[in-house]
Nucleic acid binder design. Structure first.
Lengths: 187, 187
DNA sequence: CGAGTTCTGTACCGATCGGTTCAGAACGTA
DNA sequence: TACGTTCTGAACCGATCGGTACAGAACTCG
């Protein structure tokens, strides 16, 4: 009875997410979002309500499609140092192996922390949750005696890798490898 | 012969720097800069030329008055693990000891990396230089055999502390302390 | 005091911001 | 084919952006 939608929300969110990821929230204008999604303003607003809501969906998409998949092996029950090392090495490989313009995007969540967490409650909540999830994943894969202390260091290393990626992906890869080497000595 | 300036550029730059530090470059408007400096737009432009140039001076001021002083003991010839530990502990103390709204500013340079380095050449250069300086300072204070590898990890920890500060200063302090404890085992 | 210079407040500039409105094209259904 | 609905493009909204022009207040010096 009605005209069918000519786009999928998932595709549009992904396109918007990549733009937010690379340029940040403030520096992404509605004109940018129109361009990357291929949609008109009115379609965007009809489908998503506002720039902020689209951003929230972009963050959700990032977590589901980018962050969590890489984390899943580390979060699996029975994960140990091997999984920690693998995680760090996969991070290093991602930094070294993806084209620099892509790697330089770093991490949408980490970027959002520095840009928005201090003054936006949603961004703060998302940032806390992400950091906490990393921390728990590492702690769960480490011997209980040293877990708390070393999980802090590893979580810090991951955050630093993703910040350094914005500067020099190669340096980020070096850092991720250094962390992997350190973790390997904990076997 | 001429009217004397009723403000010092150093004071104005400091005020602007604190605003940029807390809110970032994009989110700081000329109206904000007028407010925090107590100066009119025309005075700001007459004295500094543009928002970008004022930002460059703010970064310079941050390096000279905030970043370098804390780094000096670590960079001194003869510095060793003790100075590394002291640096990390002073960072932890700063995170835990300054009022949360101030600590939550994190680091102007690190914030600038995530906000601007990917698309602004000046920001990229400043970020590279800062990271490199941290790296060299740590490397110079560590035994040559392990220096390269561990300097990477420590530089990463510092960056992560300053990102985490934007989220939760207390968590940033915990991370800095964890790094200090780790470094202490290298004595 | 008065000349010379600098600083300051206001008002304004075009551009762009996020967001809204609405007429009509496009399409599925009957 | 004709109806009902949805999507789309363009034009527009007030607000704010960084930046400028200029007249006059403020002040130092001769």
């Amino acid at each position: 009875m009605a005209r069918t939608r000519s786009f999928t929300t998932a595709d549009a969110v992904r396109a918007a997410r990549d733009q937010f990821w690379e340029h940040g929230y403030e520096a992404t204008s509605l004109a940018d979002l129109e361009r990357v999604t291929g949609l008109n303003r009115s379609s965007i607003y009809q489908a998503f309500g506002s720039k902020q809501q689209l951003f929230a969906l972009a963050v959700e998409s990032y977590l589901a499609e980018v962050a969590v998949p890489r984390l899943s092996a580390l979060e699996a029950p029975g994960a140990g140092i091997d999984q920690v090392v693998e995680y760090l090495e996969s991070l290093a490989a991602a930094m070294a192996g993806t084209p620099a313009p892509l790697a330089r995007r770093g991490c949408l969540i980490v970027n959002t922390i520095t840009e928005r967490a201090a003054h936006d409650a949603d961004a703060h909540t998302v940032g806390i949750a992400y950091r906490d999830r990393l921390l728990r994943a590492f702690a769960g894969a480490l011997p209980p005696e040293t877990a708390a202390h070393r999980a802090e260091l590893l979580t810090g290393s991951v955050i630093a890798v993703l910040v350094t990626a914005r500067l020099t992906p190669a340096a980020a890869a070096t850092l991720a490898r250094a962390a992997a080497i350190e973790a390997r000595t904990w076997r």
